[in-house]
Design a binder for these strands. Structure first.
Lengths: 255, 255
DNA sequence: ATGCATTTGTTCGTATGTATG
DNA sequence: GCATACATACGAACAAATGCA
């Protein structure tokens, strides 16, 4: 009675293991398992876009509905982010930056089981911009030492920081050039302890240079954190201006 | 774009008080004073773009150089932000949101000498999304009470918040509908004190609905703060998800 | 500014297999 | 055997958001 419709419309998967169409595991469940495995293996990488639903459906030889069920499941698990009109993206693995703790960059990165590295972009004496001078408690245009640095975790950029120091810290510039960390350089000029006094957080879109250095599109906001560090006596020793790419980095505050 | 009559270089000002060309106060100084007054009066509003320099020069009947001196002065004062190729903008008056303090919305706004108000957008029982359930310490899909609210300061939107409460707090939904504040509603169901346990801050671009409610362009990032509130015994009583428009709002951590 | 291509979201309809009573 | 309910799977078409030239 029924018209003999073609029962097998589906194309076989090209290279990978074929899906079982037996009565065992549902197709969408098998697909989710395969994708979950691939994401865990690192391809596609965090933040990367998956092929379009139509393409994936073709790859697995299923209808788009079936594939969508698999994606929805992964999105519910938090492994994917689906954005209408744009595509599906592998979730970023977020680096929590704990404010308040006396954390050095390398410690922060290592706590997330990643390898820290960095690159000094600038180290110079300059006139402090207005906002910086206010933070450092200097008059506008006063001399300051500026260190700009790109921080990486497993080779991926995660921070772009400007550190301003009052010029009264004699020898600091040379110490910064020689030392492996800011803490160490400060200790070399007699500041053996300091703490974060205040942090102000905002966000904005990156300019072309920032986007290039941090390897993000210009539509991805930066978290911008200004902070003031003081020594034990309460004197300001550093004004920091850190830019973090979202959503790779989050700032966490735990009183 | 062009105003009524730009025929001559030194046109008289159209509607406002004329500038004095005596040897008293410099023209650019008078112009700066007028603009300062207008900005203080609220038009143009914070964040708004000023007319182009050429248009302003015409309005005051002065050369563009003269006008630029006035704008530069205002920019140095921090009242304006001049962006090459884009225009001059009235500086946003930043609302510092102090994290860590036990701050209620109305207190926060009043501390900045503005009048707080708000609008409840949603008040309903729903299944907690994954991230929320994790924050509340519930299993995924558990029932929760959701309150979504738009916060305003002097009529301008400054926050868009979702508050999730565990359904175990019986009667809370009615209390929220009746009470003027969340603190009050919680007290009505027996939670007489709570504190912020953790705050996680990120940023992203707004979707169309968020941009509309907060009255910002879609290219202006939001600060997104997730926070967990616990009662005196340490039990979670609220999971909050707040979205603040930048740069109108900054988040400040002060340990 | 406008239109176009791409991509996800939604809603129809159809068919099949399994479990239940 | 039959009716029902439910999950699975496929097909087509359209709606809506996005990005780009």
């Amino acid at each position: 009675m029924t018209v003999a419709a073609p029962p097998r419309v589906a194309a076989p998967p090209p290279g990978a293991a074929p899906l079982s169409r037996d009565e065992g595991e549902a197709l969408w469940h098998q697909i989710a398992r395969v994708l979950r495995q691939e994401i865990a293996a690192g391809t596609p990488a965090p933040g990367a876009r998956l092929p379009a639903e139509a393409a994936l459906a073709t790859r697995f030889g299923v209808n788009r509905h079936t594939l969508r069920r698999a994606l929805e499941a992964l999105a519910r698990e938090g492994l994917l982010k689906i954005e209408r009109g744009r595509g599906s993206f592998v979730a970023e693995d977020v680096l929590d930056y704990a404010i308040g703790a006396r954390t050095r960059f390398s410690e922060w990165i290592r706590r997330h089981n990643k390898e820290p590295s960095g690159r000094i972009l600038r180290l110079e004496e300059c006139a402090a911009p207005v906002a910086v001078a206010r933070g450092l408690g200097l008059r506008a245009g006063a001399r300051a030492i500026l260190l700009e640095r790109l921080g990486l975790a497993d080779g991926r950029p995660v921070s772009l920081t400007e550190h301003y120091f009052p010029a009264r810290l004699r020898g600091l510039r040379a110490a910064l050039a020689a030392a492996a960390s800011i803490t160490e350089a400060l200790r070399a000029v007699g500041v053996d302890d300091y703490r974060r006094q205040l942090t102000r957080v905002s966000a904005r879109l990156p300019d072309a240079a920032e986007a290039g250095l941090l390897r993000i599109p210009r539509t991805r906001p930066l978290l911008v954190a200004e902070n003031v560090n003081v020594d034990r006596a309460g004197a300001v020793v550093e004004f920091g201006l850190a830019r973090y790419p979202t959503p790779r980095v989050q700032i966490v505050f735990e009183p």
